[in-house]
C-alpha cells in the first residue's frame, strides 16, 4: 500500500506542477460565480433584448433558476473541461515511456491504474465541490427562498457519476492511440447513453440520470430512491471499467 501512496504522491505533484489544479480551480470558480449571476440577470437581459413594450410576465428569478444554471454549466461544460484536461493521463505516459523505468523497479501496473483513477477523481470532486460551495453561498444570499430545500441531494449523484466518467476516461486513455482519444471515448459514451435515454424504460437505469435529475432532487420533487437503479448500475459499471482497464494495461507493451 505504501507504493500506492508514492505513486499517488507523484500524480498529485504532476497535477500541481502542470498547472492542472490551478486551471481546474479557477475554471470551476468561474462556473460557481456565473451560475447564480446568470440566474439573477437573465430577466434583465430578456427585458432589454425584447424591449419593455412587450409585456410578458418574466417571473422573478428564484434559487431554482440558480441551481438550474449550476447543473447546466457543470454537466454541459464542466465535465468536458475536466475530460479534456485528463484525456492524456495514461496515453501520454505510455507514449513518452516514462513508466518503463518505474515498472522495471517494481511498481505494480494495477497501482498505476488505481492511482491515476484516484487522483483524477479527487480533482473531479474538488472541482465540483468548489463550484457548488460558491453557488450555494450566492444562492443563499440572493435567493433566500425555500424552493430548493435539498441542495446537497442534487450533488450526490453528480459525484457518483464522476466515478463512472473518470473510469471511462481512464479506459479510453489506456486504449488510446493519441492524447485526445480518452476525451473522445468518454464524450462518445455519454452521447450514446443520452441517445439511449430516448427509451423511457431505460431512464431509471441509465447512468446519465445522475446528471439529468439533479434539479428535481434539489427541489425535492424526486427522491434519490427513484434513480437508485441508475446509481447501482453506475457503481457496477465503474468497477467493470476499472477492472477492464487494469487487464488491458497489464497486457500493454511499454
Amino acid at each position: 500500500m505504501k507504493v500506492m501512496w508514492y505513486f499517488t504522491h507523484k500524480e498529485i505533484l504532476e497535477a500541481w506542477r502542470k498547472h492542472h489544479l490551478l486551471i481546474i480551480g479557477l475554471i470551476f470558480m468561474i462556473f460557481g460565480i456565473e451560475s447564480p449571476l446568470i440566474a439573477k440577470i437573465l430577466p434583465d437581459i430578456l427585458h432589454s433584448s425584447f424591449g419593455s413594450n412587450l409585456v410578458i410576465n418574466i417571473p422573478q428569478p428564484t434559487s431554482v433558476d440558480s441551481w438550474q444554471q449550476f447543473y447546466k454549466n457543470i454537466t454541459q461544460m464542466g465535465i468536458y473541461v475536466l475530460a479534456i484536461i485528463f484525456s492524456g493521463f495514461m496515453s501520454q505516459e505510455v507514449s513518452q515511456g516514462t513508466l518503463v523505468n518505474l515498472i522495471a523497479k517494481g511498481l505494480p501496473r494495477f497501482i498505476v491504474v488505481l492511482a491515476k483513477f484516484l487522483v483524477a477523481y479527487l480533482q473531479w470532486c474538488g472541482a465540483i465541490l468548489l463550484a457548488f460551495v460558491i453557488t450555494w453561498g450566492y444562492t443563499a444570499y440572493y435567493f433566500p427562498d425555500n424552493k430548493s430545500p435539498q441542495p446537497l441531494l442534487g450533488l450526490v449523484p453528480l459525484l457518483i457519476f464522476g466515478l463512472f466518467f473518470t473510469a471511462l476516461l481512464l479506459l479510453g486513455s489506456t486504449l488510446a492511440v493519441n492524447n485526445y482519444f480518452g476525451f473522445l471515448f468518454a464524450a462518445g459514451s455519454i452521447i450514446a447513453l443520452t441517445i439511449l435515454n430516448m427509451w423511457k424504460s431505460v431512464q431509471r437505469w441509465n447512468p446519465v440520470a445522475l446528471m439529468t435529475d439533479n434539479l428535481r432532487l434539489v427541489q425535492g420533487t424526486e427522491k434519490l430512491a427513484h434513480i437508485s437503479p441508475a446509481l447501482m448500475l453506475t457503481l457496477g459499471l465503474t468497477i467493470v471499467l476499472v477492472t477492464l482497464t487494469i487487464i488491458i494495461f497489464n497486457h500493454k507493451r511499454l
Binding site: 507504493v3 508514492y6 505513486f7 507523484k10 506542477r17 518503463v100 523505468n101 518505474l102 522495471a104 523497479k105
Partner: peptide, 25 residues
C-alpha cells in the same frame, strides 16, 4: 536498469525522481 533513452518526469527535480525510485525499490 539503464534504458537506452531514459525518460523522466520533466516536472520533478533529480532528487525527487530518485526519491520516488528509492521508495519503489
Amino acid at each position: 536498469y539503464l534504458p537506452d533513452v531514459p525518460e523522466y518526469y520533466g516536472y520533478l527535480t533529480a532528487t525527487e525522481y530518485l526519491m520516488l525510485c528509492g521508495h519503489l525499490t
